[in-house]
Design a binder for these strands. Sequence first.
DNA 1: TAGTGGTCTAGACCACTAT
DNA 2: TAGTGGTCTAGACCACTAA
Lengths: 233, 233
Amino acid sequence: MTDLRTRSWQGIRAEAIRRINERIWPPGELIPGEVELAEEFGCARATVNRALRELADEGLLERRRKAGTRVVRDPVRKARLDIAIIRLEVEGRGMAYRFDLLEEGRAKPPAGVAAAIGLAGRPELMHLRTLHLADDRPFAYEDRWLDPRVVPEIDGVDLGTVSINEWLVRNVPYSYGDIALSAANADEQEAAHLGTGVGAALFVVERTTWKGDAAVTAVRLAYAPGYRLKTVV
Amino acid sequence: MTDLRTRSWQGIRAEAIRRINERIWPPGELIPGEVELAEEFGCARATVNRALRELADEGLLERRRKAGTRVVRDPVRKARLDIAIIRLEVEGRGMAYRFDLLEEGRAKPPAGVAAAIGLAGRPELMHLRTLHLADDRPFAYEDRWLDPRVVPEIDGVDLGTVSINEWLVRNVPYSYGDIALSAANADEQEAAHLGTGVGAALFVVERTTWKGDAAVTAVRLAYAPGYRLKTVV
DNA sequence: TAGTGGTCTAGACCACTAT
DNA sequence: TAGTGGTCTAGACCACTAA
């Protein structure tokens, strides 16, 4: 009943997708256990496990010990967004990258930022505003707050040479964070920097980054009109 | 030199992250091979493999046969977006979902849509416009083109009862697609339906979905102002 | 061509949880 | 408590690719 199919985990994954799509394994139903499938496909249980684990990870199957594996009724597809440093994002589009450090200073953050990064007492933070350019045209406007107590190495770094964006990725390589995507009408400052009109719809990415349990930085990136973030499901 | 750490793949993954962050394994450098690490951690090579494979998948390591495993210099972080059907998205926010089928008809698609889904000859497609509501307030405005030749089962379905959004997920469960996220100023029609002013910044999701090598549907979703798509890195 | 990661196996034990 | 998936092992062979 099998054997024309590769018995690799990818082959089994493909066959499982086929059975889901063709309703051989209908939405919400239990599918056979790993042992049974391993017998059917003539392979080891670990191979079946790998295939089904990937599908569970993709949101198509739901697996629970003792309960078994079930086809998800309303699959929540997982799209992957690649979050690269802006220089690479620009260069990846075949354009020349440049940035302009508009402001570098220290100040008490606004309440919204302080709340986002869970600060008590509103200490002074570094405040950096940067304009990123592609082929000398405005690409994105960055407004960032950074807690120097969490990354003391930042002191003495010449942020006019290396963008803060890039410095952070290099120096806090593995970190966790929240990301929120939204749209906003350009205010006067943003419009001026991005070379557009007040009220233009801007694609906005807000991100808070944590190192351990301390917030490193909160950033708001507003992209020039026309920006599209693409991905694949 | 180890052994206080769990020798599970997750423990090894955590230890690898620590070494990357602390520059024990510096950016761009080769790290020891799987065999060597397995010895160090006192576990099987498959366990090391699992840990490093996950990190490669997350964009932190780069692995190549014969060349070995290397710490990525400028990691491109992968954020996951959950693409759920809109009903679940609304209900997940604790609001009541409802939708309003504004238009259901057939027409020749505009050139942009025809190009996106790779149509030759611009045949007539189904055109559906839907307003999604949360607690009776506009949530998102959907403009969709659908090729009935690819999903003939759509004929006879009462799309006033089940939203096309939901029907597709249920009936074409596993499909591939492109997604583009952007921002746009509301036009008159969108503003009217979403209960906002002309020019308001709208968060826009455009998606093309394929079944095999045939395009099933192209959809544009414009969310009411205030919408934020959140995720985690 | 040799070295490294990719995968598979057969078996074992464990962790969770439905009953 | 029993059944299912989660993980680990020790070993093997394979696939890719740098040298």
